[in-house]
Lab assay of single mutants.
Amino acid sequence: MEVRTIKVFTTVDNINLHTQVVDMSMTYGQQFGPTYLDGADVTKIKPHNSHEGKTFYVLPNDDTLRVEAFEYYHTTDPSFLGRYMSALNHTKKWKYPQVNGLTSIKWADNNCYLATALLTLQQIELKFNPPALQDAYYRARAGEAANFCALILAYCNKTVGELGDVRETMSYLFQHANLDSCKRVLNVVCKTCGQQQTTLKGVEAVMYMGTLSYEQFKKGVQIPCTCGKQATKYLVQQESPFVMMSAPPAQYELKHGTFTCASEYTGNYQCGHYKHITSKETLYCIDGALLTKSSEYKGPITDVFYKENSYTTTIK
């Protein structure tokens, strides 16, 4: 009895394709271990004539594949690729409408935090270190965002349907971005203890939790000093293409032309909904596939993004 075979390709990165001759009487799992086709788990399936010449994702289970996976995804987590594939199996079914010149995501599976993050990423200057993220990001900007969303979920250790947080998501993504040249110098002034300067680099240099107003941050924000008295913390120097200011959701007025974009969060910790506000020729609110415009805006804002380049204080 002759062994019926077909020729397929296996890959971990969709760049390096490895030619395989597979036995049609055995499952993919018996031949390769966990195997995925377009995100779908085909591990328990036997090869079919229609699979001839198709590319299958496999887990990096030998040295060659491990090197290829690390170079593309910059992670050695053995569960990463499987999590990416199972997320992709959902995100490829989502709709990605162009809204006001940006790629958004039609609401499904509690994905409003991903839509808000995706919209924000198209408006701030950011370059990702893992080629996987950078490639998928370019495709997302062009309207094909399924891979990018699935990668975000995998890097953030999230599953489809789980509630997510924009600030946490951005923080994970910033860790995989090139923020080497970003720098922030802060000064804390206390009447009792004097003053202390701190220099922050990388992710810490672009994120701040405690106030939404970048102007206020430049002037000074009140913080408790270690001595128990009130101290003032203010920005001395900022070198970065953008800054992200966050605070627990509270009524906040966004003035046209003073910011790049913002995240609105309605609801409580267990259950809520994100919308995205962007400042173009007027203010726009993007909620999944829905767009509304207004000249002014007041609502429960939790993150505001500002364009920056270089700032030095005039406070002496």
Results as ranks from 00 to 15, higher is better:
residue 290 L to Q: 14
residue 290 L to S: 14
residue 232 T to M: 13
residue 188 V to A: 04
residue 282 T to S: 14
residue 204 E to G: 08
residue 113 Y to R: 05
residue 5 T to M: 08
residue 277 I to M: 07
residue 39 G to V: 05
residue 205 A to P: 04
residue 44 K to V: 14
residue 4 R to P: 12
residue 80 F to I: 03
residue 23 D to F: 12
residue 292 T to E: 15
residue 54 K to N: 13
residue 293 K to D: 10
residue 72 Y to S: 11
residue 313 T to L: 14
residue 98 Q to M: 14
residue 282 T to G: 09
residue 50 S to P: 07
residue 228 G to W: 01
residue 70 F to G: 08
residue 110 N to M: 03
residue 312 T to R: 12
residue 157 N to L: 00
residue 273 H to L: 02
residue 304 V to T: 05
residue 279 S to E: 03
residue 312 T to Y: 15
residue 42 V to S: 04
residue 152 I to A: 15
residue 297 Y to Q: 08
residue 226 T to S: 11
residue 154 A to P: 03
residue 230 Q to E: 13
residue 31 Q to T: 07
residue 236 V to F: 07
residue 226 T to H: 14
residue 167 R to W: 15
residue 210 G to E: 03
residue 182 C to N: 00
residue 124 I to S: 05
residue 74 H to A: 05
residue 82 G to F: 13
residue 50 S to Y: 08
residue 298 K to H: 14
residue 56 F to S: 00
residue 166 V to F: 14
residue 233 K to M: 14
residue 303 D to F: 00
residue 218 K to Y: 06
residue 163 L to Y: 14
residue 104 S to M: 00
residue 141 R to G: 09
residue 131 P to Q: 09
residue 289 A to L: 06
residue 245 M to T: 05
residue 202 G to R: 06
residue 143 G to K: 10
residue 206 V to G: 04
residue 201 K to L: 10
residue 2 E to F: 12
residue 316 K to V: 13
residue 177 A to K: 06
residue 108 A to T: 11
residue 78 P to T: 10
residue 133 L to P: 00
residue 259 F to S: 10
residue 244 M to A: 00
residue 20 Q to K: 11
residue 218 K to P: 04
residue 107 W to H: 15
residue 223 I to M: 14
residue 161 G to A: 02
residue 70 F to V: 08
residue 189 V to H: 08
residue 214 Y to C: 08
residue 118 L to E: 04
residue 232 T to P: 02
residue 215 E to P: 02
residue 95 K to M: 13
residue 172 Y to P: 00
residue 269 Y to E: 14
residue 237 Q to N: 15
residue 278 T to L: 13
residue 29 G to H: 10
residue 94 W to L: 00
residue 170 M to Q: 01
residue 142 A to W: 03
residue 264 E to W: 03
residue 117 A to S: 10
residue 171 S to N: 08
residue 42 V to Y: 14
residue 304 V to Y: 04
residue 163 L to D: 11
residue 297 Y to G: 05
residue 224 P to S: 10
residue 63 D to T: 12
residue 80 F to M: 00
residue 101 G to P: 02
residue 32 F to C: 13
residue 275 K to T: 04
residue 315 I to R: 13
residue 48 H to A: 15
residue 177 A to Q: 02
residue 274 Y to M: 02
residue 36 Y to Q: 06
residue 206 V to R: 02
residue 307 K to Y: 10
residue 104 S to C: 08
residue 152 I to S: 00
residue 166 V to Y: 11
residue 137 Y to I: 06
residue 8 V to A: 10
residue 173 L to R: 04
residue 205 A to I: 01
residue 167 R to Q: 07
residue 69 A to R: 01
residue 272 G to E: 06
residue 36 Y to A: 02
residue 279 S to P: 06
residue 186 L to V: 10
residue 266 T to V: 14
residue 63 D to N: 15
residue 222 Q to H: 08
residue 98 Q to D: 10
residue 202 G to Q: 05
residue 294 S to A: 13
residue 79 S to N: 11
residue 72 Y to L: 12
residue 39 G to R: 02
residue 219 K to G: 09
residue 284 Y to C: 11
residue 97 P to S: 09
residue 114 L to V: 09
residue 250 A to E: 12
residue 224 P to L: 13
residue 154 A to I: 02
residue 159 T to P: 14
residue 66 R to A: 08
residue 233 K to V: 14
residue 62 D to A: 06
residue 291 L to M: 04
residue 239 E to N: 07
residue 97 P to R: 06
residue 277 I to T: 06
residue 182 C to H: 12
residue 283 L to A: 04
residue 172 Y to K: 01
residue 202 G to K: 03
residue 243 V to E: 14
residue 190 C to I: 02
residue 307 K to R: 13
residue 163 L to R: 09
residue 17 L to N: 09
residue 238 Q to L: 04
residue 161 G to T: 03
residue 301 I to K: 04
residue 242 F to E: 07
residue 252 Y to V: 07
residue 135 D to K: 07
residue 300 P to F: 14
residue 128 F to L: 04
residue 52 E to L: 10
residue 259 F to T: 04
residue 121 L to Q: 01
residue 148 F to I: 02
residue 310 S to A: 13
residue 303 D to M: 09
residue 50 S to I: 11
residue 94 W to F: 04
residue 48 H to I: 09
residue 84 Y to K: 02
residue 308 E to L: 14
residue 134 Q to P: 02
residue 76 T to H: 09
residue 26 M to H: 11
residue 140 A to P: 01
